[in-house]
């Protein structure tokens, strides 16, 4: 897509509108259509020295809502996203546990993880909608998303504690079951990566589990293994994010 420069304020409005519509479950194609149409309008208006307020009125929030109301909610895509998010969340623990031996999960852990994926997705999307429609600054955005992540960590700890206190029925996968489950998750990750055209999931999985696995063959002490493993994971993820941000920047120039 050609890139036409809008003022910073107008660009922020367009970006926020995009996030608002996406997190309201609207169809991607329709989102592109309306944001591109508005971009074209604002571009021409700015050449003629009009302000964004003359276009969207005094309340960006109300304007975003009026656009959103005219768009259908894309339930079809959401039916696909939700199982993807749940399987994605499970894949992190499945691979970690496979490296330790065979798989066995209690009912509390399984239902907890599903509940966690749903709640986490719902709260992230609610947070995004709130941030976008109120056009909050970067710092406030980070604070809100940060608190969602911290709260979700508490939820995970809650599940783990509940699991250690209460004995719930446990499903043991056995050796064959574990290998089979591993293969299913592995093929899911490959399919997901091809479909979404991004390697983010396998890359993060490798960042989390590979250092651990490789360090086991070294003669480092357990504490230093843990410290090195966590550091390598963070460096790896930070490096990847840095690469993505630079690529984004270059493509928008």
């Amino acid at each position: 897509m050609d890139h036409f420069t809008l003022s910073e304020k107008s660009q922020k409005f367009i970006d926020d509108l995009r996030i608002y519509l996406f997190s309201s479950g609207k169809n991607d194609k329709e989102i592109n259509e309306i944001t591109e149409e508005l971009e074209a309008h604002i571009y021409e208006a700015e050449i003629n020295n009009k302000s964004i307020e003359q276009i969207i009125g005094a309340s960006p929030k109300q304007y975003m809502q009026s656009i959103s109301q005219e768009m259908k909610t894309d339930i079809h895509s959401w039916m696909l996203y939700i199982p993807l998010i749940i399987i994605g969340a499970f894949s992190f623990s499945v691979f970690g546990d496979l490296l330790q031996g065979t798989l066995s999960y209690s009912i509390i852990i399984i239902t907890g993880t599903i509940l966690y994926s749903l709640l986490f997705t719902a709260s992230v999307f609610t947070a995004f909608r709130y941030i976008a429609k109120n056009q909050l600054s970067r710092i406030k955005e980070l604070l809100i998303l940060g608190s969602v992540v911290v709260l979700s960590l508490f939820f995970i700890f809650g599940i783990i504690i509940a699991d250690s206190f209460y004995n719930s029925p446990t499903i043991n996968f056995g050796i064959i079951g574990s290998i089979f489950t591993g293969l299913i998750f592995f093929s899911f990750i490959i399919t997901f990566s091809i479909w979404s055209k991004t390697v983010v999931l396998p890359l993060f999985l490798a960042a989390i589990h590979l250092p651990d696995l490789l360090l086991r063959y070294t003669s480092f002490q357990e504490e230093s293994q843990l410290a090195i493993s966590i550091t390598v994971t963070y460096i790896f993820i930070a490096g990847y994010l840095f690469y993505v941000v630079r690529k984004e920047k270059r493509s928008s120039e």
Binding site: I34, L38, E53, Q54, I55, I56, S66, I67, E70, M71
Partner: peptide, 14 residues
Amino acid sequence: SEGTIYPILMRMQR
């Protein structure tokens, strides 16, 4: 405000 026309156009197109 100029942007008011877009929700209307979206509805009329639908």
